[in-house]
Amino acid sequence: MSKQVSSSADLPLPANGILKQKARDELNKSWNLPVLFSLTLLLLAAGAGAVTLPLASGQTPGVILGFFIELILLLIIRLFAFGAYRHLMQRIRREETDYRDLIYVFRHQPDRFLLVSLAQAGLLAAYLLPIYAFACLMRYSFAVMLTLIILWVIIGAALLGSILLATVQTPFLLLDDADLKVQKALRMSARVMRGYRVQYLKLVLSFLPWLLLSILTLGVGLIWLLPYMMTSFTFFFDALLYPAEI
């Protein structure tokens, strides 16, 4: 069931620090299911890597096949991740939750979520392909191609980042409203993110030190960091769409 989306222009969004504190407080009540979901997602991602790793180290056709297999597996894992977001969304709204939330997306029009994921993967491919093309042409003119690569890495990242930041709320909107179409969700995401893209980027970047800390734990820390990040993003979405309730 969805709520009426309110205008966020009249009420300021809480600072990222407050959203993160809310996320910590919420998780500290019970870490059980978020940790279980996070562990599942990490194991699935590790499994996908293990499946495609032998192909990636072989000949070119194998590498291409490995790339596509990994892409498909990652898209499936993303559906589980959306299920975890659904769980967190329900939880912070004090609605009923259970472990079946993880497969929520598979039971409720997974095509909509696949479409969004494919669109975002397509954007990423559109960003990476020119870099690959310029690198292939380096043997003809090294200096020119290197300059083009550096320029594209900077300009392309700004363009890609801007588009991704505008569409970042699409899965949340789809999770929030079972009847919402993908196109409308994309447009709505761009509308609600207007003016808040920098704050969202700051929220994402604020987790970089945490990720570095998790590397020191050989990835074990991600089991707890992932739910924290996801809960913070969910609070951001709720604060953005339902400012009166935050």
């Binding site: 504190q21 910590r24 407080d25 998780l27 500290n28 945490w210 800390l213 998790s214 020191l216 734990t217 050989l218 074990v220 820390g221 707890w224 960091l225 924290y228």
Partner: peptide, 18 residues
């Protein structure tokens, strides 16, 4: 010590209320 230390810092930061 680095493994447990990093995990300890992570848990301490996650436990923070105010």
């Amino acid at each position: 010590s680095v493994f447990f230390g990093a995990l300890g810092i992570l848990f301490a930061l996650l436990s923070r209320h105010k």
